[in-house]
Amino acid sequence: MKRRDFLKWQVAGLGLLGVNAPLLAVAEKVFDGPPLPDVAVAKGSPGPATRAAVNQIGGMTRFVKPGQKVVIKPNMSFARGPESAVNTHPEVIGELLVMCREAGAGKILVLDHVLQDPELCLGRSGIRDICNAFQPGICHNLAAESFFVEADLPQAAEMRTNAFMRDVLEADVIIAAPVAKSHSAAGVSLSLKGQMGLIYDRRVMHSRYDLSTSIVDLAERVKPHLAVIDATRVLATNGPGGPGNVIQPGEVIASADPVAADATAVTSYEWYGRKIQPRQVQHLRLAHQRKLGRMDIEALVTKRVTA
């Protein structure tokens, strides 16, 4: 072989490698196992279904690295028990805590800024009890200004600033763990809408800004790294406060993409007794348009399992 030919082959080989880099990545994945689904839906009782759903999308170790600070954001705004479906089921939170610890998380906090009397909310929701059983002093309602720091949202369309929980801004991992419920202004209240509980002044999101737009603005800063939607009970009408029609799908939805998780919840259940498309939820449509996630779940891989 001539030296020239040798060099030609070498260049060609390099070019081939370059072209096929994505293919190689796929090969790597195949080598590691089947590709992970984008969204997992697990049927079962709250705790096991939570574990199964998160495991399907790669397990907690995919999201939480040893020593990292984790904030879990549940729904616990209402002084009602789990059966009302206005708050996240405590066992979902309990399972997430255990999984975070198994993944080696450093500091874990369960935080919300509740609507009704905080004592009653944290108590009746059952979430504080399960958190205290895991590790005392990790579940808090933060309402005082001193727990919040002003932060900019440079990518925002409308709400360019608000005060966020200091612990949330300092967290390495944010896990949204909402209950699936309808919402008379936003359509549904899921993992994007639920992040309103992490800021100091959410009144402006109703009064000064467009609610749906500012929900998406919020995601520019506190988009969850992992969304775990508690659809063991779903408040299908008259949310977010209820009382409304509670259906019992007995499912937990997990995804690294909160928009996809929310879109899955929207299409999986009937709201007010009818089918709703993700595009009919304005903040999901906007989040999709702003590339914060994908609502076109028909183009994504969803895996359904039974825990």
Partner: peptide
């Protein structure tokens, strides 16, 4: 009222009412 006067989708009063007395 945001809803009555401005046509805005604001449902906070309905959301927080513990007695279900506010209807939309």
């Amino acid at each position: 009222c945001l809803a009555w006067a401005w046509g805005r989708a604001c449902i906070v009063c309905q959301e927080v009412c513990p007695y279900g007395a506010v209807k939309l």
